[in-house]
Design a protein around this nucleic acid. Structure first.
Lengths: 222, 222
DNA sequence: ACCTGAACACCGTTCAAGT
DNA sequence: ACCTGAACACCGTTCAAGT
């Protein structure tokens, strides 16, 4: 058991533990050191209780993480599109969703680890439906476009997060395209050797995707 | 220690253990039950050795997984584009890459868990560079297009894999859009209530992305 | 050069026993 | 209704000791 001083939540007097305190302490642990640092034993130490008390309030580690995910997603807040042209409004929703998810890296990790990636779609789905409809898509084509944007954003965030976690890549694009010319195109080789700017790459690719979804014959539903 | 009969590799006589046998047994375990089932102790049981012998040959669990990832990626085989039009060739590369990764779900999990997602890009990168160049893109624009396609494919596979792992989603699109009308568009609501066809969604979205990358002013590099 | 068991420092979870 | 410690069945890793 930790002493009062070293605990993160010295506000908890030796009265009764409740579910709220467990969730708060768990949230703090995850925020500081990530989901893998949230062990039942550390949590108990943080709370100054026996490990087993936690089980009485939250069942087990699994449902504790469920609760954290649900709470964080509920706190994300609504997304407000900006701009006038339909393209721009959809792109702005994609960027806002990406930013929300990026601002909660541990949430993304927890959701993905627990197979709930689809859950991350929902907060933005209503807004996207509205904007895609306003852009003139209907029925199946509209639904497909919404889902395409959703998967693109969430997939991009997953890849980004992962890239940032990796220290140095083993073969690595840098060495791969370093001196070597690519298709006799030194500018291409140089560009591939440079590190990626994730923000720019995201904006560019989502613009291209939305443009393809709205403006070409091969769009969704075909 | 397991008996000879219950071991997966009874071929290993009680002679010497070597790195190759460790990797083979580890691969078998991962193939059957996924990376989280690969524990040093189970592996030792499978091999009929002491746990600690494994450490002599592969260092630790971390570098064992490194080796597995590297080996599986090396075995993936080259990607051969099909079709004549540049769009179609690039789309065919994307679909082939997706299929390769989907055929090795545990590889994708291992690579992602270990922060090596970028590593999954490389096998297809040279091919994509060639095709994008053939499509007429140059320099930074070409590099951006290559990366946009790569991230789209890998991100899509990550989301797909995750969706399949999830049993039933909690709020779920089905209930969300069940009776409710979306933008007075019953066909849209019905489409959103239907389960996703991942293959169709992928093909459609990658076509839209490639079209946007090649055929519009707002493409990469701007 | 290779293998071994014992030991260490962790996990999540169950359960009977307390108040 | 809530909390407790002991115990179980696991982990990865280190290390001195064997051959």
């Amino acid at each position: 058991m930790k002493s009062e001083e070293t605990r993160t939540h010295p506000d908890r007097e030796r009265g009764h533990l409740d579910r709220e305190q467990v969730l708060a302490a768990a949230t703090a642990l995850v925020k500081q050191h990530g989901p893998q640092a949230l062990t039942m034993r550390k949590l108990a130490a943080e709370l100054g209780t026996a490990v087993t008390s936690i089980y009485w309030h939250v069942g087990n580690r699994e449902s504790l993480l469920d609760a954290l995910v649900e709470r964080t997603l509920a706190d994300l807040g609504a997304i407000h599109p900006t701009g006038r042209a339909p393209d721009r409004r959809i792109v702005s929703v994609a960027r806002a969703l990406r930013r929300q998810l990026r601002d909660h890296p541990h949430l993304v990790a927890m959701v993905h680890e627990r197979g709930l990636t689809e859950r991350m779609f929902l907060p933005a789905q209503q807004v996207l439906v509205h904007e895609v409809h306003a852009a003139g898509l209907r029925g199946t084509r509209a639904a497909d476009a919404v889902r395409a944007v959703q998967v693109h954003v969430v997939g991009h965030v997953l890849v980004e997060r992962n890239r940032e976690r990796a220290p140095v890549q083993r073969p690595g694009e840098e060495e791969l395209w370093g001196a070597q010319t690519a298709e006799q195109d030194p500018a291409l080789a140089r560009a591939l050797a440079r590190p990626v700017d994730p923000e720019a790459l995201f904006t560019m690719s989502v613009k291209a995707l939305v443009s393809g979804l709205l403006h070409t014959g091969i769009g969704p539903g075909t």
